[in-house]
Design a protein around this nucleic acid. Structure first.
Lengths: 169, 169
DNA sequence: ATAGATGCAAATATTTTGCCGCCAG
DNA sequence: CTGGCGGCAAAATATTTGCATCTAT
């Protein structure tokens, strides 16, 4: 087709050609992996996300930046990032259905703590958990390469809400 | 249809009418939940499983006992058991695709430790993990009702296999 | 120039739903 | 007897694949 790249880019948030890549982009560049226009957009979405997104949400946000991004490309890019260990795939205890959620993961592991009622997810880093991992590596003769810990319960405000509903339903 | 229950039951493993219910069956009975023929079969499969099964595997095993069991019923029964908190739904880090795996869960939590190469899953109970949960409950003012910890790595034999392949591919 | 990416459509895979007849309690 | 269940088919959802075309390097 004859449209230029610029013409495809929406009016909202945009990615300048010269913009410096985020963490994920740098990682791919380091490994000599081709950085296409679509990948740059998807990586930007992942790099700047403030919460866990599923594939459809990633697609939505990517399209707001560049309407030409396709669902298939999102899936393929997520696969690539998973393979490289640059993102984690979470299920968050299926609180909101069976979708998968993705997060760009930094150098440290963390535990996901989710409220089963309001769905809010908090993160928690813990020396105790690091200790647990070390112990498992020793006892099972195994080098751990990925961990996923999801804990569900009711946060204080939801617990109160539910308790008061129980009194007068 | 006019076939009797007995006629529908296959020649292999079978469930006698008088057979005492396993843990899951007792739980449902206690709660006054109807125990149909199909549920009995599915609960039996879950109660006696020695490893994590996905829905299709549960269906297969159930059909070996009673060929009339349907996929829909398996899904509905699994939902029921999930709701009641009698089984856990695992993803096992998607080692083997995006299916869900189920296990009847006893009184204690355990951590799942999976080899990313051979797919073997081992379980691990840990006082350290219990301590971690207590600490989280305190720090987040939250009553934990479900946890899921999945740890992936390469077991000793797979690590060796992979290392030797690397030398001469 | 060319290996590797993308787009599109169609195929898979998995799980859910509506409706009706059936059965456990 | 009767309200909850299960069967069936069809729908909904989510993800993957084949192939032709395009593009980043």
């Amino acid at each position: 087709m004859s449209a230029t790249s610029a013409a495809r880019i929406s009016r909202g948030e945009r990615l300048n050609a010269g913009e410096k890549p985020g963490r994920l982009g740098s990682e791919l560049a380091t490994r000599g992996i081709r950085l296409t226009r679509q990948r740059r957009v998807i990586l930007h979405v992942m790099d700047t996300a403030q919460r866990h997104l599923d594939a459809a949400e990633i697609l939505d946000r990517a399209r707001k930046i560049d309407s030409q991004v396709h669902a298939v490309t999102v899936y393929r890019t997520l696969d690539l990032l998973k393979q490289l260990g640059l993102i984690d795939e979470l299920d968050l205890l299926h609180i909101r259905g069976d979708r998968h959620y993705y997060e760009s993961h930094g150098p440290r592991d963390h535990i996901h703590i989710a409220c089963l009622h309001c769905g809010k997810v908090r993160e928690y880093e813990s020396a105790l958990f690091e200790e647990l991992k070390k112990r498992i590596e020793r006892e099972f003769d195994m080098k751990i390469s990925v961990t996923r810990t999801e804990i569900g319960g009711y946060c204080l405000s939801c617990a109160e809400e539910l308790a008061s509903q129980k009194k007068r339903p």
